[in-house]
Simulated assay, not measured.
Amino acid sequence: MKFAAVDIGSNAIRMQITSISLYEGVTKFKKLEYLRFPLRLGLDVFHNQKISDINRRKFVKLMKAFKILIDLYEVDDYMACATSAMRESSNGKKIALEVKEEIGLKINIIDGNKEAELINKSLNKFFDEKTYLHIDVGGGSTELNIYKNREKVVSKSFQIGSVRALEDKVAGPVWTAMENFVIKHLQHSSKVISIGTGGNINKIFELSLPRKNKRYLDYQKIDEVLAYLQTLSFDERVHKLNLNHDRADVIIPAGKIYQRAMKVANSHQMIVPDLGLKDGIIQVLYERHIAKKPL
């Protein structure tokens, strides 16, 4: 079986093709292809409420390239999901329709709750009886999910994201709403473990020089990495640390969003599993395929 996931975010667009096989009772997921293209749709939308014509043309070309790869790999199923930028854009639905009619690729413009639900599909193995705050920071939105005793208690999406914060497009009351949400649902929890997903926290983890086979970050270590990044210019982040241009400018505001949520939750440790929306989509496609098979 082969499945394809397309994650259309505010800062970049990703495609992953995964093969899934069953051998001696063990299900194995193997990544066959992964592409990330730095098309910052959020910059258009957060300033002008619509995707510009130049980015619309680039987007359509990119979807055509993705569709060619999907066809070449002969995948069994695919799902393309668009998040904050396209759902807030006045012409997002029109562009999605254009892609469907011209290329034959269906795009699902999903809300924040659906986005969180898909991301959480890939995280189930990390939950136990402890209390967890899952923080997913994208370019345009942040999804918070709280788990207790292996069950999701509550989730909420906030218009707080790395690109939005970089452009100073996050209103004060939105920050307050996020903090109040965390306080309301975690104020009586003695120990909260955070789980961080998103490209920026993965890069912060990488820069922290983690110990082998450890996927944990302490709050203090995040602080140290951000402090170091702030001593570097944009060009130094690109050339000394080899960061992509579209990562070098948003990594600090993104890191501060993770820190803000952790601080309010009094959480001192974060698991960084290197999973996200694309992985959740693959899981959903696999479950859908299994459900269709006769018993």
Rank of each mutant, 00 (worst) to 15 (best):
L275N: 02
N200V: 02
K263N: 13
S190G: 05
S84L: 07
S189A: 15
L226K: 08
I252P: 09
K130R: 15
K94T: 15
I290K: 15
R260I: 09
V182W: 09
T83C: 11
G255W: 04
V154W: 03
D111Y: 07
A96V: 04
V137R: 04
F3K: 00
L69H: 00
G196K: 08
L207K: 05
R164P: 10
K114Q: 04
E33Y: 06
Q283R: 07
Y132D: 13
K156S: 10
E224S: 13
I17S: 00
K67F: 00
R56N: 09
K125A: 12
E129R: 12
R87N: 11
E206C: 10
I252F: 04
F126R: 02
N124W: 01
L62C: 10
I160P: 13
Y286C: 02
E143V: 09
E143A: 13
R150D: 12
S21M: 07
S155F: 00
K67G: 00
F29M: 12
K152G: 08
A4Q: 04
N242V: 03
S141T: 13
Y147K: 05
L62E: 06
F126C: 01
L144Y: 05
C81T: 12
D279T: 08
G139R: 01
K64L: 03
L62R: 04
N48W: 01
D53V: 12
I107M: 05
I195D: 07
K31V: 08
E129M: 11
M86G: 06
G255K: 12
Y228H: 14
N145H: 06
D7T: 03
E151Y: 08
T142V: 07
S233Q: 09
M178Q: 14
K240E: 15
V174E: 15
D44W: 02
N48Q: 12
N11G: 09
L105I: 00
R260P: 03
H289M: 06
K214C: 13
D128N: 15
R247D: 07
N108S: 03
Y219I: 14
K152W: 02
S267T: 03
R237G: 07
G9S: 10
M63E: 00
A265H: 08
I109R: 09
C81P: 03
S21N: 13
H134F: 08
L39K: 01
Y219R: 15
S84A: 14
L133F: 03
L72H: 03
H289G: 05
E129D: 15
E24T: 12
T18Q: 13
A96W: 00
Q220P: 02
E74Q: 05
D53R: 02
R260C: 11
L209E: 11
Y286N: 11
F205N: 06
R40H: 04
V137Q: 09
K221T: 15
A116T: 09
K148R: 13
S19I: 02
I95N: 06
T27D: 05
L166G: 06
V6Y: 00
Q269R: 13
M1K: 06
R215G: 11
Q269D: 14
K278T: 07
G9P: 13
I20T: 10
I54R: 07
K130Q: 15
M15N: 02
F29L: 08
A227Y: 07
E206F: 04
V137F: 06
N242G: 14
V163F: 03
S189I: 15
K148D: 13
I146N: 07
I251P: 01
